[in-house]
Design a protein around this nucleic acid. Structure first.
Length: 284
DNA sequence: TTCCAGGTGCATA
DNA sequence: TATGCACATGGA
């Protein structure tokens, strides 16, 4: 990856492996806004604006080290895409050509957990709205010389003070009670310790939490912990599987679909999933 | 108006 | 272990 890191600014020259629209619209993250000039993202208590030009991308940000990691700039996506193309699967090749600039963001663990509990059986617009309100009502208000005022994602301590009725007011619907319970459970675990666990053990740890089943656990591990040997199967991936991977035997059993796809893509599952998801959801 | 959304929890067999 | 249903709410 060819990029230059300066104080509060990262300039990216390898625009074949960094497309801001692909990165933010591919469904991995919900807290961003699009304007005519830039995409703005808040992650944890950090903020960035991403400007796209003909031959480069500029990221103005509160902390260049934080966003160098967040945008996964040290990973070579050209190599990842080549490895995926070596499978010679037409649908995946189309998906990669379509979403060529996708990168898997290294998101904050807690923020990912809360976001994807809210995401269950929900639509992306509404998820975004709930998370925006959650941050504005319960997160710390921060002031930046460059970006003005913005709101951090609530800390675990701040989250623990929110009751079920307040979560309902955020538009989280029946997930409100699950969120209160999950936040209680989170207080008794060390989120950083999950990095030391195998994918299976980590999955089981999260599935025991309220509001987290197999799919949300996979999303937490993929987007919050950068574990690539998981394959979140939602309604869109079910469609993908039955269009392109089922050899005439469509499946509705999502754990089975997941098993088949992980068998194919193994340690590249997370990347493959994201290209396929974005392709299926936006190609209409 | 009806269907659907990045599913989960729980009861039942 | 597997299947089926209820669940809150807003977008399309």
């Amino acid at each position: 990856m060819n990029y230059l890191k300066e104080k509060n600014k990262i300039t990216i020259y390898d625009i074949d492996s960094f497309n801001v629209t692909h990165i933010f619209e591919c469904g991995q993250v919900f807290r961003y806004t699009k304007t005519d000039e830039y995409y703005e993202a808040v992650s944890k208590d950090q903020i960035a604006r991403v400007y796209s030009y003909e031959n480069r991308v500029e990221i103005l940000c509160s902390d260049e080290d934080y966003f160098e990691n967040y945008f996964d700039l040290k990973t070579d996506y050209k190599q990842i895409k080549n490895s995926l193309k070596a499978f010679k699967i037409d649908a995946l090749n189309m998906a990669i050509d379509y979403g060529y600039g996708i990168r898997i963001l290294r998101q904050d663990e807690l923020e990912t957990i809360i976001s994807f509990i809210i995401s269950a059986n929900n639509n992306i617009k509404r998820i975004q709205g709930s998370l925006k309100k959650l941050s504005e009502r319960f997160g710390t208000k921060l002031k930046s010389k460059i970006f003005g005022e913005y709101y951090a994602f609530p800390t675990l301590k701040q989250l623990s003070k929110i009751n079920e009725a307040q979560f309902v007011e955020l538009g989280t619907g029946y997930r409100a009670g699950q969120l209160v319970k999950a936040i209680l459970q989170l207080q008794n675990m060390n989120l950083k310790n999950v990095y030391n666990l195998s994918t299976n053990t980590a999955t089981n740890t999260f599935i025991e939490m309220s509001g987290i089943g197999p799919k949300v656990a996979d999303c937490v591990l993929l987007f919050g912990y950068y574990k690539m040997d998981v394959f979140p199967v939602d309604t869109w991936i079910e469609k993908v599987f039955n269009h392109y991977f089922c050899n005439g035997n469509p499946l509705t059993n999502r754990p089975l679909i997941r098993k088949e796809l992980v068998k194919i893509f193994d340690g590249l599952s997370g990347y493959a999933q994201q290209y396929l998801f974005y392709y299926e959801r936006t190609q209409k």
